[in-house]
Every structure is written in structure tokens, then in C-alpha cells.
Computed example of a mutant assay.
Amino acid sequence: MSDDVRNIDDALSRITAYWQPHRLTSINDYDVKVVKIHGEFVWHDHPDTDELFMVLNGELIIQLRDRDVVLGPNDVFVVPRGVEHRPKADEEVHALLFEPKGTVNTGSAGGEMTSPLRELP
């Protein structure tokens, strides 16, 4: 996988559902994931890892219990490990996520929005 060139726009064009991260590539023990976001996700945390969001287009709001963080194109924000958060977007957002391999999208919350990491079609 590391020898192949990946195109973010091509990868996003193949994703058909929101909130289902797809592996774009991996580096060391981390996955670089592409995801389409729309609506509200669940409140959750990742007790053992930070989570990096990079917005490619659209406006993503990451709700924290004490404030909202608003990200636009090319903005990056790291949610520290153990911090409860809920991403939401009023319109479609395309984003990259950087997380250790095996990180579950709903963290410790689980539930019906939990999505296994998917490979690009």
C-alpha cells in the first residue's frame, strides 16, 4: 500500500455514505482516513489516543463539552485523548482523520453509528 499513489479527490468520489471512514493509506502505526460528514455524530471519546481532523472542504463543528471548535478548509484540530466530543456538519464536509490503527470511530460510546474501517472500493 505504501508504494501506491493515492488521490484524495478520487477516494472521496468513491465514498457513498456519511460517517464511514475509509483508509486512504497507513504510515507506521497510523491510518490516514478519508470521510464524508453530514449531520450530527454521537458524543464519544477515545481514551487511549488523540484524534486529528483536517477539513478539506465544508465547515465542520467539533463540539466539546465546554466550547465549539469551527473548522473550515485546510484547518486542522486535534482532539486530545479522553476528551468527549461530537463532530457535526450542517452541509457535507470532506475530511482526513489521522488515528492509530484499530481506532473505532465511535470510541468508547459504541452504538449504531459504529463503522468498521473500510477499504476504498
Rank of each mutant, 00 (worst) to 15 (best):
residue 14 R to L: 15
residue 15 I to T: 05
residue 16 T to F: 05
residue 16 T to V: 14
residue 18 Y to G: 08
residue 20 Q to A: 14
residue 20 Q to C: 14
residue 21 P to H: 12
residue 21 P to D: 13
residue 21 P to E: 14
residue 22 H to I: 07
residue 22 H to N: 14
residue 23 R to W: 05
residue 24 L to M: 09
residue 24 L to P: 14
residue 24 L to F: 12
residue 24 L to H: 13
residue 25 T to N: 12
residue 25 T to L: 14
residue 26 S to H: 08
residue 27 I to W: 03
residue 27 I to E: 00
residue 27 I to A: 06
residue 27 I to G: 09
residue 30 Y to V: 00
residue 34 V to N: 04
residue 35 V to R: 15
residue 37 I to C: 10
residue 39 G to L: 10
residue 39 G to C: 06
residue 41 F to C: 06
residue 42 V to A: 02
residue 42 V to P: 00
residue 42 V to D: 00
residue 43 W to R: 11
residue 44 H to T: 01
residue 44 H to V: 04
residue 45 D to S: 15
residue 45 D to T: 13
residue 46 H to F: 09
residue 46 H to T: 09
residue 46 H to W: 13
residue 47 P to L: 12
residue 48 D to M: 08
residue 50 D to Q: 13
residue 54 M to E: 02
residue 54 M to W: 05
residue 54 M to D: 01
residue 55 V to Q: 01
residue 58 G to M: 04
residue 59 E to P: 01
residue 60 L to V: 02
residue 61 I to Y: 05
residue 62 I to Y: 02
residue 64 L to W: 04
residue 66 D to Q: 07
residue 69 V to R: 08
residue 69 V to D: 02
residue 69 V to K: 09
residue 71 L to E: 03
residue 73 P to T: 14
residue 73 P to D: 09
residue 74 N to Y: 12
residue 74 N to Q: 13
residue 74 N to D: 11
residue 75 D to G: 02
residue 75 D to H: 09
residue 77 F to I: 01
residue 77 F to E: 00
residue 78 V to F: 04
residue 78 V to S: 09
residue 82 G to Q: 04
residue 84 E to Y: 07
residue 87 P to Q: 07
residue 88 K to G: 06
residue 88 K to D: 02
residue 89 A to P: 08
residue 89 A to Q: 06
residue 90 D to V: 13
residue 90 D to F: 12
residue 90 D to P: 10
residue 91 E to W: 03
residue 93 V to K: 04
residue 96 L to D: 06
residue 96 L to R: 12
residue 96 L to P: 07
residue 97 L to S: 11
residue 97 L to M: 15
residue 98 F to G: 09
residue 98 F to V: 15
residue 99 E to K: 13
residue 102 G to Q: 00
residue 102 G to S: 00
residue 102 G to N: 00
residue 103 T to V: 13
residue 104 V to G: 05
residue 104 V to T: 11
residue 105 N to I: 13
residue 106 T to E: 04
residue 107 G to Q: 07
residue 108 S to T: 07
residue 108 S to P: 02
residue 109 A to H: 01
residue 109 A to W: 01
residue 109 A to P: 01
residue 110 G to L: 10
residue 112 E to A: 06
residue 114 T to H: 01
residue 114 T to A: 05
residue 116 P to V: 03
